[in-house]
Design a protein around this nucleic acid. Structure first.
Lengths: 137, 137
DNA sequence: AGAAATTTGTCCGTATGTATC
DNA sequence: AGATACATACGGACAAATTTC
């Protein structure tokens, strides 16, 4: 089967239509979108393409998806800007060296170190927290 | 987007970075790597390229991937890459959760956590100290 | 309480078209 | 011309969370 992507890719077309339903209230705030399987039938697209379309809306903050439950239209009216992207799970900050770090790095206790923290989670479960310390440059 | 592969092919560069994360403990043994889709975003590479990178690590035995689940760093298998960094120190100990860790793990401040610390050095210079925290089981 | 069905999450293999080095 | 890379798309399979029976 050909996969020509002239003009608009299919997943964007699908995303546009779903966005229209949400903005028009056809899908009420908080309401569930059709399942991926239903959308697959409706748009006669593969599940991957449907999921890509939903991912677009998710990135826009228009919908939220819950494993095993479904995808629902954002509950509240959003007037937020395109400035999003909080939950990065990676944080940088400066810390002061505890006695052990100080000994390892050969600095004084309380000296400034650069710390990086990553949080690993599978689903909602926190697997581990990794903190990496380096000397400031 | 350009496709500059000056020195190394893209997939090798990505493979190197992922390998580094595993060897540094940033991705703990047995821990899940980011999904293909996440790596696609992070490295701004296509899925094919990301999969090629993972294939490299799989051939090296650094990771195993399970259908429908994800790709995880190989469990404890040290001697495989013994030539890499023989002089790294690893310590295990129990610690009490500081307020931030407590918040992340959803436990009380002072609760017991399992900590693992690795020190990376090149020659005599301390590169970094990596501390990994997990819930006791 | 427990099994089954539903639904989303992820990976696999493959394919086509486009673009760049 | 060939290798590398990107974007898109399909269909299948297994995994995991949730809901339903």
């Amino acid at each position: 089967m050909p996969t020509p992507h002239y003009g608009q890719p299919r997943y964007r077309v699908i995303a546009d239509q779903l966005r229209e339903r949400i903005e028009s209230g056809s899908i009420p705030p908080g309401g569930l979108l059709p399942t991926e399987s239903a959308l697959t039938s409706e748009f006669r697209a593969s599940r991957g393409t449907v999921r890509q379309a939903i991912a677009v809306l998710r990135d826009e903050g228009m919908v939220t998806t819950e494993h095993g439950r479904g995808t629902s239209a954002a509950p509240i009216r959003q007037e937020q800007k395109a400035k999003r992207k909080p939950d990065l799970e990676i944080r940088y900050h400066e810390v002061t060296a505890d006695p052990e770090l100080a000994a390892i790095f050969g600095v004084e206790v309380g000296a400034t170190l650069i710390a990086q923290q990553r949080v690993y989670r599978t689903g909602g479960f926190i697997e581990s927290v990794v903190r990496t310390y380096r000397l400031p440059r």
